[in-house]
Design a protein around this nucleic acid. Structure first.
Lengths: 160, 160
DNA sequence: CCAAAAGTGTTAATGTTACACCCATGC
DNA sequence: GCATGGGTGTAACATTAACACTTTTGG
């Protein structure tokens, strides 16, 4: 695929990963909407899979996948990755669904809202959802520019 | 050096890092007590340096160092790295000094104490500091076993 | 009018920050 | 007895968690 934003997760370079030789793999992770991206290589049994129902993988590939998923769960809590997976204008429900899916938790709707609004990075577009069989939600846009300018504290607090 | 525990920080593989060819570097970070470890290679101008007063570095090595330092500052807040740098039995003052040095912040003594004791991973050895020109502090030991068994929550809270 | 999800506020619990006094040791 | 840093508790504040009712739309 072209034009996908990748972030590096980790390099895997243990001896013995591959039976034939020492192989170093650098794993990257990306959030992409599979509706909007086609796999270019259709050979080699290349498919999309659910993370919950994965068949056996070769070598240490399962470990790599697990490392990526854990990385993602942590990363998305600390950085605004998720928006690349949503349309430019999205409802809070879509955003929450995304977080719930990735983190595999249920979140309180009101507290989720408060949290995001308190970060002050979502802009009301003034538009509403359409074609929903219930009260339409407002559509928001993520303000990347504001996010960039925001000063991030180095100190979060010791906790382990 | 032998026998130092390394943790991987990041791989650097941009094109153009090195003028001659594409070079991939995998950076690792370790906390070691330079009193207890000798540099084995004395050629090649290999020395210890303070991070605060570093001369120019070749290629993108400064970026690598910065990435490592930032990684360390984050990592030490979430994982018990620091103890590898202290003697097995250490005073809380030593521990706090370590955190203050790495994070480059001043911390409140009482709150630091409370924080660590609330994690319930420090064991009182019953011993005291010696040869200090003031009231000696108690010596503690970090309980790695308890730390391992501790269940870590996946969910910390969205914040960016 | 019914179903479905949106929108909203308050309270309790928890965690974090700020801060001051007495104590034990070496000199 | 003085200087130095060790040890401790509390109150204000900030953050998070829990929780229920009204509103808007489509059918």
């Amino acid at each position: 695929m072209d034009d996908v934003y990748l972030e590096q997760v980790k390099a895997f370079g243990e001896t013995g990963r591959h039976p034939a030789a020492r192989v170093v793999t650098i794993a990257y992770c990306s959030l992409i909407n599979i509706e909007h991206h086609q796999l270019k290589i259709l050979a080699n049994e290349l498919h999309w899979h659910r993370v919950t129902t994965l068949s056996d993988m070769a070598f240490d590939h399962r470990q790599i996948l697990d490392a990526c998923y854990e990385w993602l769960q942590k990363r998305i809590q600390e950085h605004p990755l998720g928006f690349s997976l949503l349309p430019k204008k999205f409802s809070l429900r879509e955003l929450q669904n995304l977080y719930e899916a990735i983190l595999d938790v249920k979140l309180d709707r009101r507290n989720f809202r408060k949290k995001f609004f308190s970060m002050d990075l979502l802009e009301d577009t003034g538009e509403l959802e359409t074609d929903v069989p219930h009260r339409p939600g407002k559509l928001y846009r993520f303000n990347y520019e504001k996010y960039q300018k925001k000063e991030r504290r180095k100190w979060f607090g010791i906790d382990f």
